[in-house]
């Protein structure tokens, strides 16, 4: 079965893509992913914010107690420049050389200059594409939603102007109009949109009275939201669509493809079952296709997307009402 496909103009042997995770922290991890059967690898993100926080903390600790006592005007040797960004780039370069599949770099910038500079460096290091992880959580009540949207577009435009490789934008689901946001990014030149990034919600532990950082792996039910939006956006964008979230088994991969995704990304499943699981997913997909009589992905992709020209909102509302009715029928309390 031919599972090959194109994503942002890049040829992939199959549509299962390893999304950004700790698996790419080491070259060995990258190698295993590559051997495990994925179609492409998205590296973990370079977090400029972290680099800056690291530099800031370093500077702060260096200053503690300095210039106070005549015998010890400092406590550390003059620090050598930080190589943390360089470390990422070196790993990326070696990953590109090692992996037999395309390697996409992921960038989470923090400053206007940082986005473009790091993107250029990633391109130079051989990244097949760059995924912008614009992870902006507008927690403050004073932050204007429109401004958040503009920032996404501005960052994309700057990076596009800076590099020649394709650029994807990973979106959060928290926009008033996800579709419009995707369209604006599309118009601004995005080569792909990835739906969606996960916001690690913290959890409250009532026993210890503590807030526990949310680092749980995703579960299949989480695929519903991205799947819905993939279905709605399919056919409306020039940009490719990457689907991300809640992939556990073959059926989840298939569902995303049916909804219209160009590629299906997974982290949790690979973390749970190991990198080789990507191969199983691809094989399962091939089996399903042959069972269902498809012989190319194009025949599958978007089969269950919202039909073009239809009133998508009506379609969705109808689905929603159905869903609610079913829920009310099935979930009754003990009273």
């Amino acid at each position: 079965m031919n599972l090959s496909t194109r994503y942002m103009g890049i040829d992939l042997k199959n549509p299962v893509v390893a999304s950004a995770s700790s698996q790419t922290y080491t070259l060995e991890g990258v190698r295993r992913l590559s051997m495990g059967g994925v179609g492409a690898i998205v590296m973990h993100s370079l977090f400029e914010e972290e680099l800056l926080a690291d530099a800031e903390q370093r500077a702060r600790l260096l200053e503690v107690g300095s210039e106070s006592f005549p015998e010890s005007l400092s406590y550390f040797p003059d620090p050598l420049p930080s190589k943390r960004a360089q470390q990422y780039l070196e790993l990326l370069e070696r990953a590109v050389a090692t992996a037999e599949v395309p390697v996409i770099a992921s960038l989470n910038g923090a400053t206007p200059g940082g986005w473009t500079a790091h993107a250029r460096e990633m391109e130079d290091a051989g990244a097949a594409a760059i995924e912008l992880n614009i992870h902006m959580v507008p927690v403050g009540p004073g932050i204007d939603g429109r401004r958040v949207e503009e920032l996404h577009v501005e960052i994309l435009q700057q990076v596009k102007a800076a590099v020649h490789v394709p650029v994807a934008v990973k979106l959060s689901p928290f926009f008033s109009s996800v579709a419009q946001m995707a369209s604006r990014l599309d118009a601004a030149g995005a080569d792909a949109v990835v739906l969606f990034s996960r916001f690690p919600h913290p959890r409250i532990d009532p026993e210890s009275l503590e807030v526990i950082p949310g680092v749980d792996l995703s579960s299949p039910v989480e695929s519903r939201l991205p799947q819905t939006w993939v279905a709605l956006l399919h056919g409306h964008l020039q940009a490719a669509i990457g689907a991300s979230g809640g992939v556990e088994g073959v059926e989840d991969v298939v569902s995303y493809l049916l909804a219209g995704a160009d590629v299906v990304m997974t982290t949790s499943a690979l973390l749970r079952h190991g990198p080789e699981y990507a191969g199983s997913l691809a094989e399962g997909l091939a089996l399903w296709m042959s069972r269902k009589g498809f012989d190319a992905l194009d025949q599958v992709r978007g089969l269950l997307a919202v039909p073009q020209g239809n009133d998508a909102a009506t379609w969705q509302r109808a689905q929603y009402v159905d869903t609610l009715r079913v829920a009310n029928a099935n979930w009754q309390g003990p009273w």
Binding site: D54, F76, L80, S82, R84
Partner: peptide
């Protein structure tokens, strides 16, 4: 501690 983390910045490998 900065005495260790400093090296992680300047020479991670």
């Amino acid at each position: 501690e900065l005495r260790y983390s400093m090296l992680a910045s300047s020479d991670p490998a």
